[in-house]
Design a protein around this nucleic acid. Sequence first.
DNA 1: ACCGGATGCAAGTGGGCGCTTGCATGGGCC
DNA 2: GGCCCATGCAAGCGCCCACTTGCATCCGGT
Lengths: 197, 197
Amino acid sequence: MVLRDKILRAATELYAETGFRGTTTRQIARRAGVNEVTLFRHFGSKTALLHEAIQCACAREERRLLPLIPGEVRVELLAWARAVWAGLWHRRGVIRTALGEIEAHPQLYPKENSATASAGRELASYLRRLRAAGRVRASLDVPAATAMLMGTLFTDAMSRDILPFLYRRNPTEAVPEYVDLFLAAIGANAPHSQESR
Amino acid sequence: MVLRDKILRAATELYAETGFRGTTTRQIARRAGVNEVTLFRHFGSKTALLHEAIQCACAREERRLLPLIPGEVRVELLAWARAVWAGLWHRRGVIRTALGEIEAHPQLYPKENSATASAGRELASYLRRLRAAGRVRASLDVPAATAMLMGTLFTDAMSRDILPFLYRRNPTEAVPEYVDLFLAAIGANAPHSQESR
DNA sequence: ACCGGATGCAAGTGGGCGCTTGCATGGGCC
DNA sequence: GGCCCATGCAAGCGCCCACTTGCATCCGGT
């Protein structure tokens, strides 16, 4: 079944580069090193092929979890944010294209199940745990705070290569800055060993 | 010259809905209530037409300025953030599509001159003024803070209608929440009349 | 009244598209 | 060896695309 995967990978790449209409079956076949007929014998139609390719590309995302019992908030959040950013960055091509075409082909894309959406849920429930433990400001608006950190990471990963002049720091430096700003925003205070930054 | 504008508006709409390849000259002509030949007589080619349409759509954005001498930071930032969010929301269709196609057709889109980029510059210089005036934490990382607020507003405006289950608050409530979180993040303190929220 | 420029209309051109068909080929399994 | 399934190859089908051409029409300025 190596061949199926080669086709799917070629389809995903081309989709990320040129979108649904821009991706032709001839291109997919050429990049996969396969005859064009083979695509149709395997997947039936271009739509079915791209559907499967996109689902695969999104599903392969491994979920990164935040601890059930919060410990060192800065350490935990930083590791999580790095992983989320890396995942977004790695798939930025597909995500950007999908975002632009989701209105035209809504059935092609996962929404509730998208990696970004579940990362958001993960963060929100972690923040609720922090608030319940009195580790952050009691008046914290969890959905807004979630949207803030997710939005920061998302926009950075999506536009860093397009508008490079906006991002002077490289990602290894930028993400910790975001996390520290975020900790200040939510009023994080740790019972044990928190340095201000 | 009403006709030219009708064509450009139709082209922009269709582009936002279906992208460059998805937009056909026949569709543009029909939506503009014009014969297809007229498009070519006016603009020469589909590419030239869409190029002008996109440039117009982005240029019409009015710049929203932040005061040179900061006064009531929360009031000023909130008004600015509302305006920026509204601009992003209004053009979300074109922006999403453009973001997905900027790799394939880079010359079609403004980058340095995009409304989002100049809004980011505006915010960054305002933050530098605040820092110089000692109104925010002295150690504030201006580029990171800028990326944070811009990213929050951008992602909200881009994904609110796509992932509605992530956004429980309507935008009129959400933007102030973002601003308050942001004020806490940058350690804003006002010399006169700042209530905590 | 007349002229010229802008527009509409109908038809067509070459090319790329998704997809199909028919046949040759080759490699693993009995 | 003989069979069968997967794949390659070549050709083609109908469709839509961007774009062109030639001609009719209309409308405003003089």
